[in-house]
Write a protein that binds this DNA or RNA. Structure first.
Lengths: 134, 134
DNA sequence: TACCGACCTTGAGTGCACTCTAAGCAAACG
DNA sequence: CGTTTGCTTAGAGTGCACTCAAGGTCGGTA
């Protein structure tokens, strides 16, 4: 993502406005995780205040929310990193990004089917126990 | 489960017949995992050959397959252990077992909904990328 | 002025679920 | 008889995704 090459103009989505504590509140990610995500390259380095404190932008928040979606679908951090690197590399990588997301989408659908299949065994067992309780 | 208190009568489901390698093939679990499951108490100690090698029964296999179902639905090993202890404690715990499985079932359903919700964001992104490719 | 809270960093620690190592035994095989 | 294969154990190691400790700065507050 190229938001950090944009000047942090007041009122724009790139304006540095949020402290790390505020981002914790808005994303549910911990400060530890935010710093870790930055260190490993999942997140561009956010702006800093004059004494070195991070200031995140609306664009950063949006990106973190999207990362949260990916995490919630079980995407490993390594795959999230690959996706991030594609975004960073620019618009030429849209097709590759799409492919990566499609592949992951298939995995999520397979995961859902797997959960549903195994849930049937659970349902059977619950039913078995329920019969004797009646 | 009380299968180990049954005599290993030939032809019964408790007959010790399978080596650990055969169980690996039939369950997909590794020999390491099988020994670990035994050590932590998820699996009763299987019978042993005269030189100390494990011999598993059809009942053991069935139990391991059920554990595999639970794992596949994301049940933590600790919860599997609680369920195992209830089974070991006897028929009086059927209601508790049922409750544990029902609670887990709710978690699995919530997980599926969560995956589906987050998948919508992925779908939206894939669609966005797809529009530009046309 | 002293204290508190929110932040900073690097490197180490944690929880979870396995997974492997090293040294050994026994049966089968050539 | 030597080698190979499948197995044994206790304890350590691994991968993953965080999470924390320790020592620090700075602004706000009493």
């Amino acid at each position: 993502m190229s938001q950090m090459s944009q000047a942090a103009v007041a009122g724009s989505e790139f304006e540095a406005r949020y402290t790390i504590g505020e981002v914790v509140e808005r994303t549910g990610l911990t400060a530890h995780t935010l710093r870790w995500y930055e260190r490993i390259g999942l997140l561009d380095h956010p702006a800093r205040s004059h004494h070195g404190q991070r200031r995140f932008s609306d664009a950063d928040l949006g990106w973190l929310r999207f990362l949260g979606n990916l995490r919630a679908t079980g995407m490993p951090v390594a795959a999230m990193l690959r996706y991030t690197e594609l975004v960073r590399a620019g618009d030429d990588t849209r097709a590759e990004r799409r492919e990566l997301l499609i592949a992951h989408r298939e995995e999520v659908l397979a995961r859902i089917r797997d959960l549903q299949t195994n849930l049937l065994v659970l349902d059977y067992k619950i039913d078995l126990y329920g019969q004797d309780c009646q």
